[in-house]
Amino acid sequence: MKIIVTKEKAIKLIMLIAASTSVFIVLLIFLFLGKEAAPFIIKPGLSELLGARWVPVSFQKESFGILPLLTGSLLVTAIATLIAVPVGVCGAVYISEVAGSGERNFLKPFIELLAGIPSVVIGFFGLTVLAPVVKAVFGLQTGLNALTGALLLALMAIPTIVSISEDAVRSVPKSYKEASLALGASRLETILRVTTPAALPGVLAASMLGMGRVIGETMAVMMVTGNAAQITASPLDSVRTMTATIAAEMGEVAFRSDHYRALFSVGIVLLLLTFTFNIIAQKVLKKHNGA
């Protein structure tokens, strides 16, 4: 008897440890980032981080203003979201409400397959295929700009948005639809006015998770956005994202230099942004489940 009890306790403990590992790791990452970035506040000062120029390697004066990187990331993310959310949600509604089972069995695995393509492969596709197309369509001199990056990112976010939105749309109780149809609404009216609004919280959460994926993506964006650190609102200009900056510069940076600490500060900003997206998504989902 006693052995069984202790055994159960031990197993419970092991499972508890396994379950809390991720919490522990997230905390450790925050601590580590903070520790490496903090001295920057004292020496070059926090105001340096808020500047509008990112010139980490210079014979004149190094500047570590993360504004161009932040606006670059936000611009690319915003455009990607504007493209990915409508496409993703329409796709989800189609798959769960309109498509026959044959179509569904064909479409869903393919969309999920898209999620499995490594980002460097997507980036290479963007560099050699998409960039020339963007260049030709808009009559530009080069296809290395924010729009090309956003298109690639939309491509990567669509599977996430489709598959989570589809779950949300599918979990709308059948009785809602039946009531709507019984009242004489057409199928289209039912989808637009009843099913989709009922699934809205789930769809919003899906979009937030998609945005989180987009803002954290590195490789594809680094290959096609041109990486010029300038503040711009034009999708046809080159931008430099926070992720690309960390990936490109971390390998060469002198240990614990100002540049090193600035990169860690960029990492903290990035982590806080994705964190916010995830928390909003979870709040929305919780409300959805509670209602």
Binding site: S58, F59, P68, L127, L144, M223, G226, N227, A228, Q230
Partner: peptide
């Protein structure tokens, strides 16, 4: 001659790009 690059310069990740 030790001046900064233009902010518009696109920084490419590799020689091949």
């Amino acid at each position: 001659k030790k001046a900064d690059y233009t902010q518009k310069a696109r920084l490419m990740p590799a020689t091949s790009s």
